[in-house]
Simulated assay, not measured.
Amino acid sequence: MTNESLLRIGQPKSDLNKRQKEFNQLSEKIEQLDLLIPELKTARDEMISRIPTDLNPLIMEYQSFRVELVQVMDRTYEADLYRKAYLTKLSYLIVENAFDLIANYGFDELKPVFNKYSEIDIETALDSLKQKTEGKITDPAFLIEEEAQPVKEFPEHFHEWPEDEQQRFKEERRAERVQERILEAKQNLEKQKTTKSVRTVYMDLVKAFHPDRETDEGEKLRKTEIMQRVTHAYQENNLLGLLKLQIEFDRIDQDHLENLTKNQLNYYNKVLKQQVEELELEKEIVQKEISALCGLPYQHANSYTTAIVKFNTNVNEVKAEIKNIKITLKQWKIPSQLKVYLKTYEIPNETVLDEDED
């Protein structure tokens, strides 16, 4: 879609009727989405290109320090320096961290450590995880609503009803189906009229700019380029783009827009509404892709700046976590420091038992 000046019916706002105001509102909405969607796509593509270079190396550096922490906890456990309550907490932390590092980051060297402290073998645990997640779509960019279940033709126990009630129900259903077909026919007719309105604008441009009968090579090239734009807009059912092309190449003027008939405006507005719906859907898809890449709630992904700021924040947060885990690693190499942490740590969903400090 072209990104030229806003197409509006230009009479004073107080003089516009309801349909003209709606035309302007839809035109403005399309213009906004036309600018926003490429901006969001640029942000998405930039994040995709930066993840392998700016983010993933930091994440793997952080995870490598977690591997060292697991190894430190393993050595401390083997040294048998603590009482049972502390050792229980330590083995739990070893199993939880080792499994995450093996399953999600590929640190297979921790498999023997996991097996040493876990009641189930690592391969069994990985198979169980695979079965739970197999076929499950977790990417918010591609989540799909479940299809509605088909409505049953007859209610439950219908054939147990008295004959006259069955007959009355069937007659009501027949009447409903007739009304449904009438409504569907009306909707199809309206759709045909709406499509015709787009085709009418398209054919006007085709007649004016089709290059086949042009003898002058320079003019033929110009018309070929124009027709490429016209065809692209038509294939996208882009009425606003076609109207802009008509104005750009003097096929219509501003007075033409202001003097559109009631029926023309109705049809134009229906097409523009459809364009808005399609663009809103496209925007939402890109927003959800951004959300999947940087964790920003997709409803908040409304600008390039917002998305990239969130991504940069993620990068800086991982850098900060690396600094912190280096400090933790240095401290936990001292058994007494690790014990201080274990004293306050609680295994989730487990009753805390009092035990002596020693």
Rank of each mutant, 00 (worst) to 15 (best):
S5A: 09
N104M: 12
T215F: 11
T42S: 13
S49F: 05
A125W: 01
A208R: 10
D54I: 02
I102K: 00
K111A: 14
K262I: 04
D204E: 12
E146M: 15
V315F: 06
T53E: 08
L101N: 05
F107G: 02
Q25W: 01
L265V: 01
R8M: 10
A85K: 08
D45N: 14
R174Q: 12
E350P: 01
I290V: 12
N324R: 11
E28K: 10
P155A: 13
Q63D: 08
E346V: 09
K152D: 10
K319I: 08
Q167T: 15
N314Y: 05
D164W: 15
N3F: 08
A85W: 02
K152P: 02
A148W: 03
D356F: 15
R181S: 08
N97H: 08
L189I: 07
F209Q: 00
F107N: 03
N104D: 14
T2V: 00
L353P: 02
P52E: 06
L342T: 11
L245C: 02
L239T: 03
L243I: 15
S14I: 13
Q179T: 03
N24T: 01
E289D: 10
E236H: 13
I290D: 02
Y117E: 02
Y234W: 15
N302E: 12
R174M: 08
E165N: 09
T194S: 07
P155R: 05
A208F: 01
E61T: 12
N237G: 14
A103T: 07
N97V: 07
E147Y: 08
V318A: 09
I9A: 04
K323G: 05
K136I: 15
N56G: 04
D80P: 06
K339V: 00
L243P: 00
S303T: 08
S64K: 15
N3Y: 09
Q254A: 14
E171R: 15
N324L: 13
R177P: 03
L239W: 04
N312R: 02
E346T: 14
P155K: 11
P12F: 09
V72I: 15
L126H: 02
E282L: 11
P348A: 13
P211T: 00
Q235Y: 13
I308P: 02
